[in-house]
Computed example of a mutant assay.
Amino acid sequence: MKAVTWQGIHDMRVIDVPDPRIEEPTDAVIKVTSTGLCGSDLHLYEALAAFMEPGDVVGHEPMGIVQEVGSAVSNLEVGDRVVVPFNVCCGSCWTCGQKLYSQCETTQNHEHGTGASLFGYSKLYGQVPGGQAEYLRVPFADFLPVKVPEGPSDDRFLFLSDVLPTAWQALKYAAVPEGGTLLVLGAGPIGDMTARMALREGHRVISVDLVRERLARVQARGAEVLDLDEAEKGDGVAAAVRDLTDGRGPDAVIEAVGMEAHGSPVATTMQKMATLLPDALAEPLLKKAGVDRLAALYTAIDAVRRGGTISIVGVYGGAMDPLPMFQMFDKQVQLRMGQANVRAWTDELLGMLTDDDPFGVDSFATHHLPLEEAPGAYERFQKKEEGVVKVVFRP
């Protein structure tokens, strides 16, 4: 089958790889009909290269049609239409019982001290072959895949794999009070979807980004927008947001940028240096040396009102980043964060999507491309060129 594979830094290739097969009685194999390109995939493209091996199949936002099921699978049948969440989770361990599916004890990666395995996401998270491919093996098939109705196009349901539950959890964790103000840092796919959801809940939303096309998308849905470059020419984002909120700051901030943040050239240089080292040296450096770009998180801490909440959904990788603890303690800031527990939210969200499109998912993708065009799509997405916000591949 054809699949998108990592071959080196900035080197993604579509090549022939072996077809997946049933390996456990609880497996299923699906024919992928749509699969998304996520902002997190860009970390593999460069920053987390030390944890990749040439030939790794990437991608963690797939949906498709069930082709084969293992002998122990009773909830799925050949021909079912399914979305596959990006957490590889069993649904039956203690953490899954707490709906902490991103921490599944069955698929945790003890070698690297990380939580549940993820599809297509490096040795850090299990090195499980991903979904930017023509076919995908899905473990725990009685629990993990989400059956969706026939009829609407793939775009109606595809984003249940990641974007929708990630944004929904970020909003829940932000705990915006009724009639409150939410600041969303980043208007990429997750920041965009979070803003849409918050507006639907009746909150005031202020979105910040440096790409005007992205700001235009959220503004069209009803958000107020701040251009990052323009704000930095003045007193900065936090000051600009306080000016819009009676000098107090927003009730909550969702940080939807993570280590791809603009504004930390030293950290950027350290990341690039790490990618030049042998993996044995680069892996501990990337996990322990604190190479993350914290500009967005610092902005969130500065901007949030006293007693407010910060919900971190942007991905971070280092372990020893300095945080402004005095400011955080003095402001009585509440922090919530973590990988989305996708399966905890999918049933609720699916109910919202079945007969309606409240979040504009039918038109959310900016580009639909054949799988063969993946290498160019990665490059344009990283460089934020040609209005690329969300790419969906059609294998």
Rank of each mutant, 00 (worst) to 15 (best):
I301G: 09
Q127G: 00
V253E: 05
V304Q: 06
Q98L: 15
V66N: 02
D347M: 01
G8L: 10
V218Q: 04
Y135N: 03
I312Q: 11
M52W: 04
V57Y: 02
R221N: 02
D41Y: 07
V333Y: 08
G70W: 13
L210R: 12
Q334E: 13
G249R: 05
L277R: 08
P18S: 10
G249N: 10
K384I: 06
P324R: 07
G191F: 09
D292K: 02
L228Q: 14
G64T: 05
F381V: 03
A49L: 04
V315D: 01
D41T: 10
G39L: 02
N75F: 02
Q339I: 07
Y316N: 07
G202N: 09
G247R: 14
E201K: 14
A261L: 07
D142K: 01
P129C: 06
H43N: 11
Q382M: 13
H10E: 14
F157Y: 15
S74Y: 05
V225F: 01
G202H: 09
G234V: 06
N75G: 10
P85G: 06
E150R: 11
S161V: 07
P177M: 12
R306G: 00
A377W: 05
C104P: 03
V82G: 07
L276N: 08
P278K: 09
A216S: 15
D229M: 13
G91N: 07
C93T: 07
T366I: 10
D155S: 13
R214D: 05
S117A: 15
S153H: 11
K272D: 13
P54K: 12
S363P: 01
G263N: 06
A220W: 00
A175K: 12
K390S: 08
L350T: 00
A216I: 03
K123G: 07
A256M: 04
G59D: 05
G70A: 11
V313S: 15
P25T: 03
E385L: 13
T275I: 01
G247V: 14
F119I: 01
R200L: 14
L183Y: 13
G131V: 08
K288M: 10
K288N: 12
L118V: 12
P25F: 04
G258V: 00
Q332P: 05
R221D: 13
G338K: 06
R196D: 00
A167N: 06
E373F: 04
L42N: 01
A133D: 09
R305M: 15
L183T: 09
V388H: 12
D251I: 03
T309W: 00
V304T: 05
R336L: 08
L158R: 07
V333Q: 10
T245H: 08
L350W: 06
L42M: 15
P250A: 13
D357V: 09
P20I: 08
P139Y: 06
L281D: 14
C104A: 06
D41C: 14
M12I: 15
V388S: 02
N87P: 08
A28S: 14
A28N: 03
E260G: 12
Q127K: 13
R204V: 08
I312H: 09
G113M: 11
T354C: 00
V205N: 03
P18G: 00
S71N: 11
V184Y: 10
